[in-house]
Nucleic acid binder design. Structure first.
Lengths: 128, 128
DNA sequence: CTGTATCCGCCGCGATACTG
DNA sequence: CAGTATCGCGGCGGATACAG
């Protein structure tokens, strides 16, 4: 039976790997989750920044731009002073955030089992 | 209503973020998926390497070591010549791979919508 | 308030060569 | 077959200062 599995593709540019890349960009999932957590599905820059403790302005804007280019969200500028910019989930983004919520929930369900993962990051640095 | 949301935590060391880190390690999910795709839930080093086109021996071993430390899989050494090593999903790994399969399936379902994501990586490099 | 422009350290990851 | 040891680069991401 194992002889039948063509070892699954995992080609460099296959769809599943592109999804994984979405997850591997540090702030993408958290931004989507924040947008999703608001009933409007939208949020202004400042709200996003405050919801993501530790993110720098640079990374916030850069990640938002990338996400816009990826079609995960849209950017709406209110031409007023001071400027007001709102980010909103696209249909694709709304579908993807479903996955993010699954990951989020899984993490909460396995919080205790995940505690030991902390030793991982440190073990390699201590033991060259 | 929005005043009630405490902006969700996203603390540096919260469980969901640790799950995201699991996903952000380039090869982790693919290794788990390969193990899961075999009825035995186990595979030898060579099998894993062949199932992951492009991975280097170094990254394969390094990632496997990290995953072992994280409790996602176990390593069994057959003391024979030439050596035979088998990696096997742990209960935690088996539960996590469920999430991975969800991501994998989502990617296949949205393959066409994901095609435009390719332009993302290139657009920033072209337009400084 | 939102966004841009630099500078720069860290480390993830790959290439290569060598060992038992 | 499985694993270790080096070397090196690209780029993610943080700090800081400036601008409309």
């Amino acid at each position: 039976m194992e002889v039948m599995t063509p070892e699954h593709e995992w080609r460099e540019d296959c769809a599943p790997r592109r999804v994984l890349e979405l997850f591997s960009t540090k702030w993408t999932s958290m931004i989507l989750h924040t947008l999703h957590s608001r009933h409007s599905g939208a949020a202004r820059t400042g709200v996003l920044q405050r919801s993501l403790p530790g993110i720098s302005k640079k990374m916030l804007v850069q990640t938002l731009r990338d996400m816009e280019a990826s079609g995960l969200l849209t950017r709406h500028v209110e031409s007023v002073v001071p400027p007001a910019v709102e980010y909103r989930l696209t249909p694709l983004g709304a579908r993807f955030v479903g996955l993010v919520e699954l990951v989020y929930g899984w993490g909460r369900d396995h919080a205790d089992a995940l505690d030991q993962l902390q030793q991982r990051a440190t073990s390699r640095r201590r033991n060259p």
